[in-house]
Simulated assay, not measured.
Amino acid sequence: MKYNKTTMTKLINQQRELHDELKRLKAEMGLEKNLAIKALYHSFVANSGKYMEEYKEFDRPRK
């Protein structure tokens, strides 16, 4: 599974926990938005993370 910023952004907008974590990363660690989104991907999606299935649903091509 590959990182895709657009897909990850959709997932963040859908999941309140990820949205709050994004704000926290930006504020506490001073990360810019793009790096914080990528960090969330690696923490919560990649390698069988908590939101991996939801991410796959957003990543599937539409018919």
Score class of each variant (00 low, 15 high):
1 M>W: 10
1 M>Y: 08
2 K>L: 11
2 K>I: 09
3 Y>C: 08
4 N>F: 00
4 N>S: 11
5 K>F: 11
7 T>A: 03
7 T>W: 05
7 T>Y: 11
7 T>C: 07
8 M>Q: 02
9 T>I: 11
10 K>C: 11
10 K>L: 15
11 L>R: 00
12 I>G: 00
12 I>E: 02
12 I>P: 02
13 N>C: 14
13 N>S: 13
14 Q>H: 10
14 Q>E: 14
15 Q>L: 12
16 R>V: 12
17 E>L: 14
18 L>K: 06
18 L>F: 01
19 H>W: 14
19 H>A: 15
19 H>M: 14
21 E>N: 01
21 E>T: 02
21 E>M: 00
23 K>L: 12
23 K>M: 13
24 R>Q: 10
24 R>D: 13
26 K>L: 01
26 K>W: 01
27 A>V: 13
28 E>A: 07
28 E>K: 07
29 M>R: 15
29 M>Y: 15
30 G>R: 08
30 G>W: 00
31 L>I: 02
31 L>S: 05
33 K>C: 13
34 N>V: 11
35 L>W: 11
35 L>E: 13
37 I>D: 00
37 I>K: 07
38 K>W: 06
38 K>L: 04
39 A>C: 04
39 A>W: 04
40 L>C: 00
40 L>E: 00
41 Y>K: 03
41 Y>V: 03
41 Y>A: 11
41 Y>Q: 04
42 H>G: 10
42 H>V: 07
43 S>G: 06
46 A>R: 12
46 A>T: 10
47 N>R: 12
47 N>H: 08
48 S>V: 05
48 S>H: 06
49 G>R: 03
50 K>L: 05
53 E>V: 11
53 E>N: 15
53 E>M: 12
55 Y>S: 05
55 Y>K: 01
55 Y>I: 04
56 K>E: 08
57 E>T: 01
58 F>N: 06
59 D>A: 11
59 D>Y: 14
60 R>P: 00
61 P>H: 09
62 R>M: 04
